[in-house]
Every structure is written in C-alpha cells, then in structure tokens.
Nucleic acid binder design. Structure first.
Length: 296
DNA sequence: GGAATAACCTGGATGC
DNA sequence: TGCATCCAGGTTATTC
C-alpha cells in the first residue's frame, strides 16, 4: 500500500519528467478518480490544460504538482492502490486507468502520466495553495505552501521541520493506542499499517499501549525507529506485496523482503523465535511479537 | 476536542 | 466450474 516511501519513490520518479512540462490535454476516463475535485471533470480539465508544472512535491502520503502562477496545484492521493505511471504519449491504456495527463516537456518531448487505481480510493484534484508555517511545505520544493486539502496533514518524520518535542508531548497526552496515534496523519504523516507495525516491533512497543503510558524516552525511540524503517524502505524502493504498488516505470520495490512482522502472523519472530500474533484492529490487522512487545 | 466506528471500493483468495 | 464470502486499508464523515 502506498505509504511515505512508496509515494516518495513516485514523486522522485515523476519530478524530472513533469517539472517545466506543460499539460497539453487531460483525459478523464472515470470521474470516481475526482472525488477530491467536487467541481467535476470539465472544471478539472479546464484548470489544467495549457498550464506548466513547477515541481513535484510530497508531504506524508500526499503528492502535488504546483502549477505556474503559484496559486494552485494538481494534488494526488494514491489511496490503497493508486499508481502514477510515466508512459509514451500514445501508449495503450493501463488496466484501471482513470485519468491520463498528456504533457510536453522541453527536453523529454511528449509524454503521458497515467493515473491508474484498482480500488478507486485514490483521487486527483486541482486545489488552491495556501501558506504554511515557516519551512518548505513539503519535500521537493522550497516554497512554504501546501494545497488547502493538505493543510491539516502534519509534517512527516523525515521532514527537517518536523517538531519532535511537540509530537512526543502530543503522544503522551493521548489515551488511545500508540498504533492509532501513529496512523493519525494530523500528528505525524506518512505512516500506514505496514510501517506502523514494523516501527513498533523495532521499538519493542505493543501496538495497544496507550500513548499516555509511554515515557518520553520510549516515544523518542519509537520515532527513531520510524525514521529508520522509512529510510530503509525508501532505499529499497518501497514495499510491494502485489501489483498494487509500483514506481512510475511499473517496477516493484524490494522492502517486502525486509518485513519483520507485517503479514507474518503465525511465523517466528526473528528476534526471539516466538510466533508473531495477528489481531483485528479497527477494520484492519495488527501484527506484533507477544514476547518482545509487552503491553504497558 | 478527543476517540471510535462505518463507509467507500475492487479483485484476489478461499470455501463450499 | 461457479458462486458467495472474506479480506486488504487510507481518509473522512458521523456519532458519542
């Protein structure tokens, strides 16, 4: 599933192809891919055609392409199965392709950016850019701006401007489970079910431990493990369990080979040999080692 | 305001 | 072989 490392791989793959490119045409093949753009397909197309792209920027799991004029941006959220694929301008349609952008780049010529999404939880939109506090709004641009739909999303753990002290304090004020806190994108962004389980295992913290039950030192250690897991996944091209996550060229990542607990219910923990447990957790699953990760 | 939960959605896997 | 059911999970609206 696309979490921070997967979205960053997509962003870094798109950036050289779309920066300074002009959008010549837009094909909306399925309006369900525009749930974030309430004004509909015709408005979406009108706001994009003829515009030049400034950069490719990411905060957490949100990706956006600021448009010339610096007033608005094309935003993308990949949901659970969204893909942004770079193709030749006349390439055949992808399976589950919902939107295609035709672009013309000064150096690379005519290309297509295909947004494909099997489960249709992902969406594109054109959204106004708003000022954000101090530092750059996201990775990939120096501008202190974010799309209005991203304004409530916290900075991610790899963002140099991430406020570690504020995060630790916020965690220790909360009575809910630490895993739920890690998945709260308004506190820390970019973490999904896979990396939450992996970071908690690495930090030896039970996913159902309450935030208020953790020491500042424990939260700091968890944050450190979050960063290590995200950086390692990024270095390995992200996690691909199936065909749902690929980079802009359609290639899978390798981090699935480094997974310690996620999806390994019933298999031995690599640290202590105990069997990894899988339990239901708010409409999804949590995986943890019952010996290494004691509940506090 | 914090916390919990349901709904959205498709296709692969599984069971009968 | 065909059909029904379960499961995966990020975000947001709703409810308490």
């Amino acid at each position: 599933m696309p979490e921070l490392p997967e979205v960053e791989v997509v962003r870094s793959g798109l950036a050289p192809a779309v920066t300074s490119a002009r959008i010549s045409a837009v094909d909306v093949l399925d309006e369900r891919a525009l749930t974030r753009h309430p004004l509909g397909a015709a408005d979406f197309v009108a706001r994009l055609e003829g515009r030049a792209v400034r950069a490719a920027v990411r905060r957490g799991k949100f990706l956006w392409l600021p448009l010339e004029g610096d007033d608005d941006a094309l935003i993308a959220h990949l949901g659970m199965s969204g893909q942004m694929l770079l193709r030749e301008s006349d390439a055949v349609r992808e399976r589950h392709e919902r939107i295609r952008l035709h672009i013309e780049h000064p150096q690379h010529g005519r290309l297509a950016v295909a947004f494909a999404d099997q489960r249709t939880f992902g969406s594109l939109a054109v959204d106004a850019l708003v000022a954000t506090e101090g530092a750059a709004g996201g990775f990939g641009s120096d501008l202190a701006q974010v799309p209005s739909q991203v304004a409530h999303i916290a900075r991610d753990a790899l963002d140099p401007a991430f406020d570690e002290r504020a995060f630790i304090a916020a965690v220790r004020r909360r009575s809910s489970a630490i895993k739920r806190i890690l998945l709260d994108q308004t506190l820390i962004s970019g973490i999904g079910n896979i990396y939450a389980d992996e970071a908690l295992w690495a930090a030896r913290i039970h996913p159902e431990s309450h935030g208020a039950a953790l020491s500042a030192q424990a939260v700091r250690r968890l944050l450190s493990e979050v960063r290590l897991v995200l950086e390692k996944a990024l270095a390995e091209g992200g996690t691909s369990f199936d065909a749902q996550y690929v980079n802009v060229n359609g290639q899978a990542g390798y981090f699935a080979r480094s997974i310690e607990v996620y999806g390994r219910g019933g298999k031995p923990c690599s640290r202590c040999g105990s069997l990894i447990k899988r339990v239901a957790f708010t409409n999804r699953s949590s995986h943890f080692c019952p010996v290494c990760q004691r509940k506090r």
